[in-house]
Structure formats: structure tokens, C-alpha cells
Amino acid sequence: MNPFLEIDRLTMRFGGLTAVDGLSFTVEHGAIHGLIGPNGAGKTTTFNAISGFYRPSGGEVRLRGEVISGLSMHEVARRGVIRTFQHSTLFAEMTVLENALMGTHMAFRPNVFAAIVGWDREDRRGAYARAVEALEFFGLEGLRGERAGDLAHGHQRALGMAIAYAAHPDVVLLDEPFTGMNPEETTRMMELMRKLRDSGVTILIVEHDMHAIMGLCDRITCMSFGKLLAEGGPAEIRSHPDVIEAYLGGARHVS
């Protein structure tokens, strides 16, 4: 059987700079997989190449054996890989409910003619139900009428995930979801992610917050300067000499 999500010798070059260099790893179905590394290791670039934001210079990304690299972002999304963005990237001017409704776009594809004639009532009801379900899943149903840009930071991050969840994803790519969160918010967010995983969604997560990553991930891939450094469970990664060296920097020179 094909691996679920397979990153195969992924290479990403910008001019003379090789940001990601022949990176390979696989993500198991139903796992929370962490992608870590020091600043500038190429984590976000990897992410952007998987989600279709960039077209890789070399290598492939396969979902259930199907090549998804090189497709545009909405095509990747339609195959079940939904990403979130760093910071609070939301439809800030729209309400919370409208944000969640955008997540239902693929399941209930809008149609101009149906909308004019009024034949899309069933679809609208379905989209509404799904959007409310997604908001309830992340505990946001009480805020549905608020403007998304006015929400607290933690709620904005949760809403970003709710949009992804509303799209019935197979894989969610979370780009630094814990940035700028206090420990309480982080703990709450970790719970939400476990809940998301338990609902059958595979999660690939890029993060700096080591506490969150170690407590959350089933498997961790560590990269440095665009290359794979180590892979394993949290305990392995924590004690891996290469990882420690990459993070603490040049231990060899000191000794």
C-alpha cells in the first residue's frame, strides 16, 4: 500500500539558494506529525511546496500515491490537503460564520444560476449546517455574528482551523499555530488539535514551540539547512545528538 502522504526528494530552489534540498519523509494516516528545525531550516518552504503555494524545483509530493506537487493551491485543497497560514490570516471583514462558510466551498460549490433562481436552498442549508458544526467543534458558535478581525488572538487561530475543518480535510497543514500564544491558550489549542486528530484528520504541523511539539506529536521530522536531520518519536528527537547540535549550535567547536 502507498504511504498516506509522502514527500519524496523534495527540492526547492530560489535562484542560487537551495531552501529545501532533497527532503524525504512520510506522514502516517491519522497521526500528528511535527516538522521542526532551527530558523531558516526551510520548514515553511516545505510547507508551501506541499500546499501548492510553490511549485517544487524537484521531487514530488504524493497523497495516497497520487502526485499533488505542482498543482495549484485550490487543486491541492480539492484533493483533501488544507493548509492554514501563519499569523491570523482570516477574512477579517467577514463574520465568523461567513468565514466558516467559506470552508464549505468545496462541498457545496456555489452556482450563479442556482443562486439567482433559488435552487440552491438545500446547498445553503447544508453549508450552513456544516459551518455551524465546524464552529461548535472549535467552541466558537457563540461568536458567529462577530467580525473575524475583532476576535481575540486565540479565537482567530481556532477560527483558522475551523475554516480548514469545515472543508472535510484528510490532511491539515498547520503553519506555526502556537505563535504568540500564552501557555493557557497553547494548552487549549493542543486539546483542539488532538480532538481534530481523533476525528480522523491527519495533521502536519510546523512549529517553534518545543513544549507543544513534544507533547503533541506522534512523530517528528527535524530538518536543518533544507535537509533531513532526524526523524522519530518525541523522546528520540529530544535526545538525538544531531538535533541538539542543530538547536544549540556548534557543540563540537566548543568541546
Binding site: 490570516t89 482570516l90 477574512f91 477579517a92 471583514e93 462558510l101 450563479v112 475554516i163 480548514a164
Partner: peptide, 23 residues
């Protein structure tokens, strides 16, 4: 309609709209 909502979404955050599968 939902089409109009998608127009708004494309306006405010085209990248996020794309990641939700909007062409």
C-alpha cells in the same frame, strides 16, 4: 448568494480562499 460571499473572500484574502479550494 454564496457566490457573492466567495467574491468577498477572494477580495479580502485570496490565498486563504485558495486554500479552501476556491479557484
Amino acid at each position: 448568494s454564496p457566490v457573492g460571499l466567495t467574491f468577498h473572500a477572494v477580495h479580502w484574502q485570496d490565498k486563504l480562499a485558495q486554500s479552501a479550494g476556491v479557484n
